[in-house]
Design a protein around this nucleic acid. Structure first.
Lengths: 327, 327
DNA sequence: TTGAAAGCGCTAACAA
DNA sequence: TTGTTAGCGCTTTCAA
């Protein structure tokens, strides 16, 4: 049978209150503390988080809602969230919404009962109305109402940076390849940043912006590049899109970085310590994760108002862009 | 303020016991049930999992202990575990042990307090002594004591299959490239299966088995292939190792599948719906995940004895092996 | 079929 | 500094 606090108290000849104080690090006379600790040791006592949670209305658990964990961006993000959380002695509920609005809702529901202390969410549905206003929530890449904190990479500057890097590497005919999600999110700013930089340099840009979910992506891409054969500098809305572009252009006998240059966005890697897949605008995933946790915990523990945080991106030279050209 | 069961009972003019029965689907007169349901609706009542857990000693939560979520094998596995669990209304604690024995131990400790109903673990340390015998545990790819269930892919047959596929594709000089983990696990059987099939065909095999953690992998590989320039059929212990081999051989101006053929193991994909990275012996990751959950839940709910399950692997033709040669 | 009440293991307020 | 005690929200036994 599992030992309870009462057992410990009896063995140590103290009251349960004292045991509780020892457990919680409240000041207790040294000699008493030692007695209690000895009793705990002897009985192999472990406090019951559920009794504690019932009493304190705290669970030391936060939930991470993700579209899917089976994606290098999200799994890297989850990795660093877990890291930060475990340093703070918080536990992590993993919620895979699987791209489904229904499942997101179900999870929110479940989380309310489970008394999580807060939520970090990358969600693509209108989740904010389901969040009770007193449950701290940090949103990634998605701007909700005033009540919700959010953390995002600087997508606009990322787009500008992509344009700049392509241009300084000698690209003359630029293109943006993107998908247009029906849900509001920050990725649209990538396109805008790209276009704005190009405009400032008086460069023309071809745009291929497909509505998601994209049907028959390959055909779209192929048509676009056949119609625009002189394109030599491409910015793709994310790394996966860039890889698709590379695949299609390979079939058209065009190879980067000799025949054209391409820059993705996200900076995904297939696993820890592996290389980036291509030249890309890398999001600061570890920072985003750490910052989200920091914000959330601040909201939980100090009842602080939500903040918004925009973190800088950086260009990573991979094997799909060439050398900078000196002016 | 959050509504409690008492509020519901009062509003519905019944006792709390009756509300509890309704919540838990115990038989109650239809008209009473309707009253209660109406009250629940009106108050937006949600049962408190913590109070429930305290009473029933159940949490409807299981923990998944992984070396790291930032790895396509583990994130795919986690994806399917989550899927199975969420169908059964279980929640998922994600525990990233980060390759550290210490952190694994800490997590086990934490899990005891947190009253998880069971654990699914891919662990590489001697965790079994920390698991109290009455906490259901399913181990992946690792054979513990009799008390622990385990699920694994058929590594031995996988090795045999790799040999067979290479040979039927015309490879004459075979090699195995592996890493040797200091911790016991099932991957050693891959090598044995490979060797056994080769032996049965009277084929010679060169072995490169490096002790982990591997220092200076590239040099080892390079030396090996310079010393054995005629190797034309390679089986790598896992997909990542295969990719390293490919990288090194590329520098030696050898390209698969023209100059040699190579087969990996695991069947990792960079994300859902993406292609396999190369020809490989694919583990049935979804099945493994589902089976683990099934086993674990059976152990939890029916107090059934641990089982061991070995699931079949299959060869996946990627772009690093050629066509079968007709005899 | 239902209500009343005990009690799960803990924290915190209060009293000593 | 410490012990005693009420009560967190629920389930479940017992009695009606």
């Amino acid at each position: 049978m599992k030992a309870t606090m009462k057992d410990v108290a009896k063995l140590a000849n103290v009251g349960v209150g004292t045991v509780s104080r020892v457990i919680n690090g409240v000041k207790v006379k040294k000699i008493t503390k030692e007695k209690v600790l000895a009793a705990i040791e002897e009985l192999g006592y472990e406090p019951d988080e559920y009794a504690r949670g019932l009493k304190t209305n705290k669970s030391n658990t936060i939930a991470l809602i993700l579209p899917t964990i089976w994606h290098p961006f999200f799994s890297e993000f989850a990795y660093f969230v877990e890291e930060a959380l475990s340093n703070l002695n918080y536990k992590l509920f993993l919620c895979n919404a699987d791209g489904s609005y229904e499942k997101e809702k179900e999870y929110i529901q479940m989380l309310k009962q489970s008394k999580v202390d807060g939520i970090i969410g990358i969600t693509y549905s209108d989740i904010d109305k389901y969040i009770s206003s007193n449950l701290p929530f940090v949103s990634i890449d998605r701007h909700f109402s005033e009540k919700v904190a959010y953390v995002t990479a600087d997508n606009f500057v990322g787009g500008q940076l992509a344009a700049q890097e392509l241009i300084t590497r000698g690209a003359k005919n630029l293109a943006f390849i993107g998908g247009n999600s029906p849900y509001p999110n920050e990725t649209k700013n990538r396109k805008e940043g790209f276009e704005s930089f190009c405009a400032s340099q008086n460069m023309n840009v071809k745009i291929l912006n497909m509505l998601e979910p994209i049907q028959d992506l390959e055909t779209h891409l192929r048509t676009f590049f056949v119609e625009n054969p002189n394109i030599d500098g491409i910015f793709a809305i994310n790394d996966f899109m860039a890889l698709e572009v590379i695949k299609v252009l390979e079939k058209l006998k065009r190879i980067a970085p000799q025949d054209y240059q391409i820059i993705g966005f996200d900076g995904i890697r297939i696993a820890q310590k592996k290389d980036f897949l291509l030249s890309t605008i890398a999001q600061p995933i570890p920072d985003m994760a750490h910052k989200s946790v920091e914000l959330l915990v601040k909201m939980i523990e100090e009842k602080v108002l939500p903040e918004r945080v925009v973190l800088p991106v950086k260009f990573v030279q991979g094997n799909t862009t060439g050398k900078k050209i000196k002016k």
